[in-house]
Amino acid sequence: MKKRYTLIIVLFLVVFLIIIYGPVKNVFLIISNPFLNFFEKASVLIISKPADFFRTIKNVNNLASENQGLQRKINDLEAEKAGLKEKEKENEILKRQLNFVENTKGMNLLGANVIGRSPNNFSHYLIINRGEKDGLKIGQAVISEGLLLGKISEVNFNTSKVFLVTNPTGAVPALTQDSRAAGLIKGEIGYGLVLEDLPKDILIFEGENIITSGLGGEYPKGLLIGKLEKVISSTADVFQRASIKSLVDYGKLEIVFIITS
C-alpha cells in the first residue's frame, strides 16, 4: 500500500519537472496542432451543424415573432441604407478633395483559425493556430469582425492563447461611445460582460456602443466591445454599473484577427 503511494508521489514529481520544462510544452503543442485542427474542424462539420438544426427546431415557436421583428429591422435598415448611400457619396467626394488615403484604420492584421477553447466556463480563452513563428507577442489585441475579443496571453511556437475580455479575472478600460463615460469592462461567468466604475453624474443610454478607451495602452482606442444593455446599479451605489451585450458568439468563433501593429 505504502509502495503504491510512494510511486504516485514520485510520478507526481516527475510530472512536475516535465511541466515546468517549457520546451516540452512547445513540442507537445507542435505535435497536437494538427490534431487540434482536425478535432475543431470535425466538431464544426459534424456537431455544430446538427446542433444548429436542433436549436432551430427548439426555437420554432419564436420564429414567427422573430420573423416579424426581423422584417421591421429590414425596413429600418433599408431606410438607413438609403441615407448611408447618400453619405457615402458625399464622403467619397470629400475624400477625393482631401486626397485621403484609406488604409483600414492603420492597423496591420493577421488572420488565425481557432483550434481550441477553454474546456470549462471559468477560464475563458481560445487557442489559435498562430504563434512565435508568425511573430505574435503577448499583449497583442485580438478582434473578430471588428469587435474586440481579447488579447494574446501566451505565445508558443505555433499556437497562442487568447485571453478573452469575458474572463472574470481581467478588465478592459472602456468608454460609452455617445455619452463618453469611462469605466472598466469586466467579464462574468457564462461569457457575460459588465461595465463598472462609471461616474454617476453622466447619463448613459441603453443601446450605446461600448468601445475601448485606449487607457493604459493595452488595447488600441476605439475598438467596439458590445452594446450597453441595462443599467444594473442602484441609486445607493457610488458608481454606475451596466450590463453589456456582447455582439460576439464566442462558441462559434472560427477565424480571428490579431492586431500586430
Binding site: 487540434l36 475543431e40 470535425a42 466538431s43 446542433a51 483550434i115 477553447r117 474546456p119 487557442i127 462558441g251
Partner: peptide, 8 residues
C-alpha cells in the same frame, strides 16, 4: 478543448 465546449 475542441468538441466539448460546443455542448454547454
Amino acid at each position: 478543448v475542441t468538441i466539448l465546449p460546443k455542448f454547454p
